[in-house]
């Protein structure tokens, strides 16, 4: 186990360097000059542009810039907004609490509803409930998040009046339920389908027959034996899914006006603030990599069959 953790940590290093390098190159090697873009169509003094570039370190050789950027990331510095000269980390820390609250809520909905639906469907494979759940999840997967967002907003807030159409106070959990449901819908569907397949496969396993033969009650056999064995792929998926949740948060927070990291990206995209987009996306990628690492470690704890030499 200890050796596995060390190996996994060491493997993270090239992936981390590679992923940040890719993001960095995408940003700076592609056409478009962020400083010049600041001035739009207006004619500008070349000296002024050079001065701003020198101030932001954009005139250094590309690899030097990448090194500075990487050093910055390790120190929690995700760049500077070019227009306002405000550190991107400031924007992140200010917006983070709302996003964490939203994501946690969405994650809970995903786990509870997704695993619940998958369990019910998997135990009754081929039945009416199973087919209904498969159909509902197929709809959730095929309707894009922003369409679901407007549909929910229109139905639950504008027509039924159960909640406010936009989130006025991100501290209030009740207002966050609707956006969290939207954010969770895609992952929920995947988790339900994955759980269903896994449960249905394992329900016919020998150990389930043994459990029944030795007189274990059905609920106990399902919760203790079946669930534990079936949820391993689901846990793996949930870890990877953090990446989807963060991309989904950009859309969802935009629709419901949640003042979080997602809406910061959404705003930066509409004002074409490249440096902010890249800074926040880099932050999200770091979070994503750390979470996948943690999930891999958890995987080893959950499944003692897996021996990592």
């Amino acid at each position: 186990m200890g050796r596995y953790v060390v190996r996994r940590l060491l493997q993270m290093i090239p992936v981390f360097i590679g992923a940040t390098l890719l993001v960095f190159l995408m940003m700076y090697a592609l056409p478009g000059d962020p400083v010049r873009a600041l001035y739009g169509e207006r004619s500008v003094d070349e000296a002024q542009i050079a001065a701003i570039k020198a101030e932001l370190g954009l005139d250094l050789p590309l690899m030097q810039q990448y090194w500075n950027y990487l050093l910055g990331v390790f120190q929690g510095d995700f760049g500077t907004q070019i227009a306002s000269r405000r550190p991107v980390m400031d924007v992140i820390t200010q917006a983070l609490p709302a996003t964490i609250r939203l994501t946690v809520l969405a994650f809970l909905i995903t786990v509870v509803l997704g695993v619940g639906m998958g369990l019910v469907a998997g135990l009754r494979r081929g039945g009416k409930t199973d087919r209904a759940i498969l159909f509902v999840t197929l709809i959730f997967i095929s309707v894009p998040v922003f369409v679901i967002g407007y549909a929910y907003q229109n139905f639950f807030a504008n027509t039924l009046g159960w909640t406010t159409p936009t989130v006025r106070d991100p501290e209030a959990w009740t207002q966050l339920i609707l956006p969290a449901m939207v954010l969770a819908s895609l992952s929920l569907a995947y988790v339900a389908r994955l759980t269903r397949t896994s449960i249905a496969e394992n329900a016919r396993a020998d150990y389930m027959r043994t459990a029944k033969a030795k007189g274990l009650s059905r609920p106990r056999a399902v919760t203790v034996h079946l669930m534990r064995n079936s949820l391993i792929p689901v846990v793996t998926f949930l870890g990877v899914d953090i990446g989807n949740l963060m991309a989904g948060a950009i859309v969802t927070e935009g629709i419901f006006n949640v003042q979080g990291i997602g809406s910061a990206v959404y705003r930066a995209l509409s004002f074409r603030e490249g440096a902010t987009v890249v800074g926040i996306v880099t932050f999200m990628i770091v979070v994503y990599l750390v979470v996948t690492l943690l999930v891999d470690l958890l995987y080893a704890v959950l499944d003692p069959r897996i021996r990592y030499a």
């Binding site: 993001v23 990446g243 989807n244 963060m246 991309a247």
Partner: peptide, 8 residues
């Protein structure tokens, strides 16, 4: 992540 990368 797929969409985040595409945005960048």
């Amino acid at each position: 992540p797929f969409l985040l990368g595409a945005m960048v």
